[in-house]
């Protein structure tokens, strides 16, 4: 594989079968390794695609400032692309996200504005919208509502998966901006009407929910429930357990939100096994574990200790 520039190397990631975590020879689980993108996460796809579409539309011109609410990965991807393309980058990020993510953003020259921990990403979105109103010349690509976020996955991630695994029966991914599920889901449905689209939604401990204002409900504008077949709610303990199993049994070092997707993938795989059906379940490895090393979930002696260390932290 040869590419003319680092940005051209986004996508075309490997799809690998997980022989140990698959429940049987007929019910197989496959991981799409999105950590193999240039900045190490799936967000390189929507970030680059949103920038390039905005350039085509003339919304983004040389010297512009890009503003984005992000819990990390989208900001890192945008910051890298902005550096190469000559834009200034401002990220709004919850104050309780890991130090690695802040360091990475700073490394690519992004400026970080912290939003209060309470409300997590919802609050970051609100703060970014306020900043956008104060600075009308800044360009907010706004991953939660930008159709080009889902469009990136419709144009690249979906076709790659179908080409590599025409027998796919289930697609599982995390529910954040919903862009991955909407884009890949729509593409796969058009080509395989019976495919099941499964969302894995993070469920935090009471400790995190305790910080939230229940009135702050926020549904990303991209979200269309009709694309989904089902939704799983995955608690921190299961997300951490699966993240560690993925590392110990299959040698894949992934972030904690990937553990949540794997948990849902194993859930649908077991249902297929119980029903006597064969299945090819694809889930996404959204990023590697590097940015979450400081949480201690990988190095804790036991899974119980690892779960304990993640209490009260946002991991998706």
């Amino acid at each position: 594989m040869r590419y003319d520039s680092p940005l051209a190397a986004v996508g075309n990631t490997p799809l690998v079968r997980l022989p140990r975590l698959s429940p049987s020879a007929d019910v197989r689980i496959w991981a799409k390794l999105e950590d193999r993108n240039p900045t190490g996460s799936i967000k390189d796809r929507p970030a680059l695609y949103m920038i390039e579409q905005a350039e085509k539309d003339g919304r983004l011109t040389p010297g512009c400032t890009i503003l984005e609410p992000t819990s990390g990965n989208t900001g890192i991807s945008l910051a890298m692309a902005a550096r190469l393309k000559g834009y200034r980058m401002v990220c709004v990020m919850p104050e309780n996200t890991s130090q690695e993510r802040r360091d990475l953003l700073a490394m690519w020259g992004a400026e970080i504005i912290s939003s209060p921990a309470a409300g997590g990403s919802n609050t970051a979105v609100r703060v970014a919208k306020e900043l956008s109103a104060e600075h009308p010349d800044w360009v907010m690509l706004y991953q939660y509502g930008n159709p080009d976020n889902a469009g990136a996955h419709y144009a690249t991630t979906g076709p790659e998966i179908l080409a590599d695994l025409p027998s796919i029966t289930h697609f599982v991914a995390g529910l954040g901006t919903t862009g991955t599920l909407m884009g890949v889901g729509r593409y796969l449905r058009e080509h395989k009407p019976d495919v099941k689209i499964v969302a894995a939604e993070p469920r935090y401990d009471d400790l995190v929910y305790g910080l939230r204002n229940l009135d702050e409900g926020f549904v990303p504008e991209l979200y269309d429930a009709s694309v989904l077949t089902t939704r799983f709610s995955v608690g921190s303990a299961d997300a951490v357990t699966r993240t560690r199993e993925l590392l110990q049994q299959e040698g894949i070092f992934a972030g904690v939100s990937t553990g949540a997707s794997l948990h849902a993938a194993i859930g649908v795989a077991r249902k297929a096994l119980k029903a006597g059906e064969s299945a090819d379940v694809v889930f996404l490895v959204a990023d590697g574990g590097w940015k979450y090393l400081s949480t201690g979930v990988y190095t804790a002696a036991t899974t119980e200790e690892a779960i304990e260390t993640l209490q009260g932290q946002l991991w998706a």
Binding site: N122, L175, E201, R203, Y209, R212, L214, E216, G217, F218, V219, P220, Y223, A225, R231, S233, G235
Partner: peptide
């Protein structure tokens, strides 16, 4: 079975 209040709008 897990029962939860639909926080954050529940997105449904």
């Amino acid at each position: 079975v897990t029962i939860l209040p639909a926080v954050a709008g529940g997105m449904a």
